[in-house]
Design a protein around this nucleic acid. Structure first.
Length: 634
RNA sequence: GCCGGCAUAGCUCAAUGGGUAGAGCAGCUGAAUCGUAAUCAGCGGGUUGGGGGUUCAAGUCCUCUUGCCGGCUCCA
């Protein structure tokens, strides 16, 4: 007999060899129906797992991340099984669960078409209907190699070869379909209730551009149709908020064939941009930063000195001036270093915080361009902080606090990642260890949760990245804090210490918005174009009922504009409903309706884009309300 | 850059198996002077992304090219 401790703490005795499924059968309630897999002594297992010794068993449902992964992973096997039935010559890649679904990579001479996707989905429904069990079996290494080699599954063979010698090689059978797979899986295909195949895309085998490109089919699945519907509606909502669509509809920016990756900001987009910059300048002034501007084009020698020529050349644009090589800056740091070097510095001056809204150009691969999220020219809200090594922690903490303050104004949640030394890096191992250690200590002292992003640091130093989460739960990397001991060396930066000797300062590079272009794109999607009043390109629009109210509308407009409100008046010969619709579509926060009644009482009827009719206001009290919203950035 | 798809009026989309480009919205003109998400009527607007080819004939087929979209890789 063995002792099994269940999720609710109860301990029961069972004969050795009993399966988790059999234990589950004795459990009451929803669990019996909803359990997808189990956590046995902390390891995710099939429900068919048999227990041979004392164990702690937790059942996993779709509410658990691990449970969802099992569900989606099994869904991907059903996809692969369907593809193999319909296109037997297809070779299999891998098919894992991902954040909101799953994918499977396939290799076959012909491309899948959208029609094929429908056929595959139909076959998947058939497989689900057949309710085939997922059966696990294990093979010896040589057996497994021979087995998959015989099937012509070259990718599976490669995977097995790369497994450690002593690894257990497990496979899952599902009807006629057998796949190399660590598992675990659902008991049977019938467990998958609702699924959708979402898209078709190319993907390099094992993620390397040196490898062949496979065809990836993305899908998702849920235990209830209503959950799938909700997810699909969520995708629709995201599509509606797409900043590229809203950017055009709200006349904020455009990207033209004449400049791929080089966005044009229209008047309304420029207002938002300027507001973001004004807010940024104000906060940085308060936080003790000085602002600088450095040139966009600088000579080759500078970029060789900074290491960019060697480490970043592929992403840079070049030009010649009087037969000498120049480069368009991809980063702002060298310029800041040169300003630092224009004079002697004392330890008493530190920290020196030089901020720069710097326009950088980077040659990004054409296939990666995406609206204003991923462009080839963007403005970083950069700053370089020069300081004593002993001031690093304090300064990094200050940057974290400033970033937190700024993100909060927009209502963003965020999480942190610590990125460590990349393969292509400058500087010694010790320097990296020390720098990474400092960042880690800061995070830990502040009690901030973070995840490690191995090998993702800048070539000159490790970094803390801020990934902010928008109103749809998507994350975007924006802010970053990078610790750098390389540039001070390369540029021979010095300061005079207490001892009268020259010393090497430490440098932190950091951005908060990241790039103004990307940040603006994130804001557009986050607010779905309905910007808070302080950012709204048009804050209020005056809507006269008919021509005889135009004069009054003009007076109201003038008062608003004199009070510093960005206001317009809609003096077109249209009905009020039409004007309101237009203002709503443009997501203008306030609509001020002016007709006979309002002229009579010297008021305006205020309609808010989301709250609707707010009633009549005399203009002064409306102004107080709006100004307050603007000042408080609500 | 790679894989796949797409490209028709400012926008969203039509155009039988090749047979000489059409609608709604927007725009312009006019009428209606109107109370909280679209008043009515009329008008203009396109070398079908660009080059080359097949054909009596190409928006439609082939080819090259540019851009966009979905991914991969990369990244602020």
């Amino acid at each position: 007999m063995i002792k099994v401790t269940l999720h609710n703490g109860t301990v029961r005795e069972y004969p050795a060899g009993i399966t988790v499924l059999e234990i589950l059968a004795e459990c009451a309630g929803r669990l019996k129906k909803e359990a997808l897999a189990a956590l046995v002594n902390g390891t995710v297992c099939d429900l068919a797992k048999s227990l041979t010794e004392d164990a702690e068993v937790h059942f996993l449902t779709f509410d658990d991340e691990a449970g969802r992964d099992v569900y989606r992973h099994s869904s991907s096997h059903i996809l692969a099984a369907a593809v193999k039935r319909l296109f037997p010559e297809t070779k299999l890649g891998i098919g894992p669960a991902i954040k909101d679904g799953f994918y499977y990579d396939f290799d076959r001479p012909d491309s899948f078409t959208p029609d094929d996707l429908d056929k595959i989905a139909a076959e998947m429904r058939q497989i689900i209907k057949e309710d085939l069990p997922f059966e696990r079996f294990e093979l010896e290494r040589e057996e497994a190699l021979a087995y998959f080699d015989k099937l012509g599954e070259v990718y599976k063979v490669e995977l097995i070869r790369d497994l450690p010698q002593d690894a257990v090689i497990s496979c899952y059978r599902c009807g006629d379909f057998v796949d190399l797979c660590a598992g675990p899986h659902l008991p049977s295909t019938g467990k998958v209730k609702a699924f959708a195949l979402l898209s078709l895309a190319g993907a390099y085998w094992r993620g390397s551009e040196k490898n062949p490109m496979l065809q990836r089919i993305y899908g998702t699945s849920f235990p209830k149709q209503s959950m799938l519907d909700k997810y699909l509606a969520h995708l629709e909502e995201a599509k509606k908020r797409d900043h590229r669509k809203l950017g055009r509809e709200l006349d904020l920016f455009s990207i033209q064939d004449e400049g791929p990756g080089f966005p044009f900001l229209h008047p309304k987009g420029t207002i938002i941009r300027n507001e973001l910059e004004a807010f940024w300048r104000e906060e940085h002034r308060k936080a003790g930063y000085d602002e600088i501007k450095t040139p966009i084009i600088l000579n080759r020698e500078l970029w060789e000195r900074s290491g960019h020529w060697e480490h970043y050349k592929d992403n840079m644009y070049f030009t010649k001036i009087d037969d000498l090589d120049y480069a368009v800056k991809p980063m702002n740091c060298p310029g800041a270093m040169l300003i630092y070097k224009t004079k002697m510095h004392s330890y008493r001056d530190f920290p020196i915080r030089l901020a720069e809204l710097g326009l950088v150009h980077r040659h990004e691969l054409s296939g990666t361009l995406h609206g204003m999220m991923r462009v080839r020219a963007f403005t970083q809200d950069d700053a370089h902080i020069f300081m004593l090594p002993s001031q690093i922690k304090e300064e990094v903490k200050n940057v974290i606090a400033l970033t937190d303050k700024i993100y909060n104004v927009f209502g963003f949640d965020y999480h942190l990642e610590l990125s460590t030394k990349p393969e292509k890096a400058m500087g010694s191992e010790e320097m990296w260890d020390m720098a990474t250690g400092i960042l880690r200590e800061v995070l830990e002292e502040r009690g901030l949760p973070y995840v490690i992003n191995e090998g993702d640091g800048a070539f000159y130093g490790p970094k803390i990245d801020f990934h902010l989460q928008d109103s749809l739960g998507r994350t975007w990397q924006c802010g970053t804090i990078q610790l750098d001991f390389q540039m001070p060396e390369k540029f021979d930066l010095t300061y005079i210490g207490e001892d009268g000797q020259k010393h090497r300062p430490a440098v932190v590079h950091r951005v908060i918005y990241g790039s103004l272009e990307r940040f603006m794109a994130v804001l557009i999607e986050h607010f779905a174009g309905a910007f808070p009043v302080w950012l709204a390109p048009v804050q209020a629009v005056v809507l006269p009922i008919s021509e005889k109210h135009y004069e009054y509308a003009r007076q109201v407009l003038e008062k608003l504009q004199n009070a510093g409100i960005r206001a317009e008046a809609d003096l077109r010969n249209e009905k009020i409903g039409y004007k309101i619709r237009e203002a709503q579509v443009q997501k203008i926060p306030y609509m001020l309706v002016a007709g006979d009644k309002e002229i009579e009482s010297k008021t305006v009827s205020v309609r808010h884009r989301s709250a609707g009719d707010l009633g009549t206001f005399d203009l002064d009290s409306f102004l107080i309300r709006v100004r307050e919203e603007i000042v408080n950035k609500v």
